Amino acid sequence: MDDAIAQAQPKSDKDLYATLDGMGIAHTTREHPAVFTVSESQALRDEIPGGHTKNLFLKDKKGNFFLVTAQEDAEVNLKAIHTVIGAKGRVSFGKPEPLMELLGVVPGSVTPFGVINDTQQRVSMVLDESLMKHDIINAHPLRNDATTSIGRDDLLRFLESTGHKPLIVALG
């Protein structure tokens, strides 16, 4: 019974760091007060170099889920994004329950690192091509009171290791 309970728990930031370390991926994490929006996190820009992310957990009409990670200032057109990410019809924001079930995070902590918890690959990973122009990508490490910096190519390697080969598209 204890094993079943342990398996049901989403991976933590410590699990993420151990996974990255095991893959030989360099990463740094900076602790800071919890941030819930891009505008709140912009105060940290001078302290943390690189590309900063905006993350959208979306669901289409057929129940398919998408994690869209974009440059923080990208203007994502929710009425049209389905045409570039392969969604079946228009998308809406996913609810907190499937967000926790699939990515192991709560609203405000959405991150590309969340796919570490999507062991059945139910979420399609989408990256904004403008974000991918940065050598360093910054995202929450499964919680919103820290920012983890990782190399762009290492982020891609991490995503692919979880079975989430990202679709890279122009979003804004």
Rank of each mutant, 00 (worst) to 15 (best):
P10Q: 10
T28F: 01
A87F: 03
D154Q: 11
T119H: 09
T162Y: 00
K88C: 07
F65W: 11
L56K: 01
E72D: 12
H52V: 10
S39W: 13
G114D: 10
G108M: 05
I5L: 12
A146T: 10
S130D: 15
M132C: 12
T148V: 11
T111I: 14
L56S: 02
D2C: 02
A4Q: 10
T19N: 02
T111K: 09
Q9A: 12
M1E: 04
A87K: 03
T83C: 00
T19S: 01
E75V: 12
T28W: 02
A74Q: 12
Q9G: 00
A146K: 04
L16E: 07
K95F: 03
I48S: 07
K59I: 10
M132D: 06
V169R: 06
S39E: 15
K11P: 01
Q121E: 09
N64K: 03
K79H: 13
N64H: 06
D2Q: 12
R45S: 05
G22K: 02
I85M: 02
P98A: 11
L20S: 09
M132Y: 11
F36T: 03
V110K: 08
G51M: 14
S109L: 11
D15T: 06
D15I: 06
D2N: 08
D13P: 00
I116N: 04
G89A: 08
I48K: 11
K88Q: 15
R45M: 11
E72L: 00
L142D: 11
D145G: 01
I48T: 13
T119C: 06
V91N: 01
M23A: 02
P33I: 05
K11Q: 11
K62E: 12
A170I: 00
K165A: 15
L44N: 04
E75T: 11
L99F: 10
Y17W: 00
P96D: 10
G86A: 09
G114I: 15
S109Q: 09
H32L: 13
S92H: 05
A139L: 12
K14C: 02
D118I: 05
D128Q: 07
S12P: 02
N64D: 08
T147Q: 02
A34N: 00
Q7I: 08
G89L: 10
G151Y: 05
V68F: 00
T53C: 13
K14M: 06
N77L: 09
K61S: 11
P10A: 12
K14R: 09
V68A: 01
